[in-house]
C-alpha cells in the first residue's frame, strides 16, 4: 500500500533522503520513548526504504537497539515504557488500536544479537512460526522449510540432519537457522540486532552475504556497532547519539562525506 499522505519535513536537517516517499517501507514520525524517567529516544523521524538495507550505527546506549525493538513492538513487553509519536508500516500505524501484535511481528521479523534457537530439532525450529499460523499441509510446510533454509544458505549443511537438535549447530549456523526461521513466516521487513557480533569472522561474512542477497525481496534494518560492516552491507545509514538522529543518508555519502562534525568524529573514531 503506498503512502497516502506526504511526510512532514524532518525536524532534523541532517537527515537527507534521496528516495520518494512511496519507496518507504517503514516511516517513523516524531518518536519519543522513555523507560520510567529515563529517555531512550528523542523526537525521532526517519523513513526506511523498501528492499534496501538500512543500518543504524552509534555508540552503546544511543538507542539504536531500542529503536529497532519499537519497530516490531517488542518494547510492549516492558510495561514501564512511555511512547509518543508513531511508526507506520506501509502507511498503517503499528500502534493503532486493533492492530494484532502477533500479526505485526509476523510481518516484521527480528533476529537477535545472540542466536536463540529453541530447544527443538532444526526442522521444528523453522516450522515453529508456520505451525502457529496453522492451515498448512505438512507437504507445503516442508516445502517452505526447505525454501527458508535455502534462502538462509543453510540447507546444504543441515539437510541430512533436520531432526537433530538445533543446539548441536555452531554459533554461525544457529544464527542462520534463526534467520531461516524468521524467513519461513514470510515477513516484509527483517530487523537484525547486531546479528554477527557473537560470531567468528567467517560466519560473519556468511551472514553479511546473506543480508545482501535477502534485500531482493525484503526490507532489512541492521543495527551494528561495526562500522566496516555497515559500510559493507548497507545502502542507507542512520547515525544515532543519545537517543537522537544525528545524520541519515546514503551510506557512501555518510561515510565518505559526512555533513556534521559529530558524525565525522564518530566514524573516524574521535569520540568526545
Amino acid at each position: 500500500m503506498p503512502f497516502v499522505q506526504e511526510l512532514r519535513p524532518s525536524p532534523d536537517p541532517a537527515a537527507v533522503i534521496d528516495f520518494p516517499p512511496e519507496a518507504s517501507s517503514l516511516a517513523i514520525r516524531e518518536l519519543s520513548l522513555a523507560y520510567g524517567d529515563k529517555t531512550a529516544l528523542r523526537n525521532l523521524s526517519l523513513r526506511i526504504p523498501r528492499h534496501r538495507v538500512t543500518a543504524f550505527i552509534g555508540p552503546s546506549g544511543c538507542g539504536k537497539s531500542t529503536l529497532l525493538r519499537v519497530l516490531n513492538r517488542l518494547h510492549d513487553l516492558n510495561d514501564e515504557v512511555m511512547r509518543k509519536g508513531e511508526v507506520l508500516l506501509e502507511g498503517e500505524d503499528i500502534h493503532a488500536t486493533g492492530v494484532a501484535v502477533a500479526e505485526l511481528r509476523r510481518r516484521v521479523g527480528m533476529v537477535f544479537q545472540a542466536p536463540n534457537p529453541f530447544p527443538m530439532s532444526i526442522h521444528d525450529n523453522v516450522a515453529f512460526g508456520l505451525r502457529l499460523q496453522g492451515g498448512l499441509s505438512k507437504r507445503k510446510r516442508d516445502d517452505i522449510i526447505e525454501w527458508a533454509l535455502r534462502s538462509a544458505a543453510l540447507w546444504d549443511e543441515v539437510k541430512d540432519r533436520l531432526r537433530a537438535s538445533a543446539w548441536s549447530l555452531s554459533g554461525g549456523q544457529q544464527q542462520r537457522l534463526v534467520i531461516a526461521r524468521t524467513l519461513a513466516v514470510g515477513p516484509e521487513v527483517l530487523l537484525l540486532d547486531e546479528p554477527a557480533s557473537a560470531l567468528d569472522p567467517i560466519s560473519t561474512l556468511k551472514i553479511e552475504e546473506l543480508i545482501r542477497n535477502l534485500k531482493s525481496h525484503l526490507t532489512l534494518v541492521l543495527v551494528t556497532h561495526n562500522m566496516q560492516q555497515a559500510a559493507r552491507v548497507s545502502d542507507y545509514t542512520a547515525f544515532l547519539q543519545d537517543g537522537e538522529l544525528v545524520e541519515y543518508g546514503p551510506t557512501d555519502t555518510l561515510f565518505t562525506n559526512p555533513r556534521l562534525r559529530r558524525t565525522e568524529n564518530y566514524i573516524t573514531g574521535r569520540m568526545a
Binding site: N72, V101, A102, R105, R106, F118, L132, T182
Partner: peptide, 26 residues
C-alpha cells in the same frame, strides 16, 4: 533467557503460544 521468549514473539506467537510452546517445555 529472555531471548527465547523474544524469539518466539518475534515469529508472531501470542503470549499463550510463547508460554506453551517454548517456555513451559523448557
Amino acid at each position: 533467557p529472555d531471548q527465547q521468549r523474544e524469539g518466539a514473539l518475534a515469529l508472531g506467537a501470542t503470549r499463550l503460544e510463547m508460554l506453551t510452546r517454548v517456555v513451559l517445555p523448557m
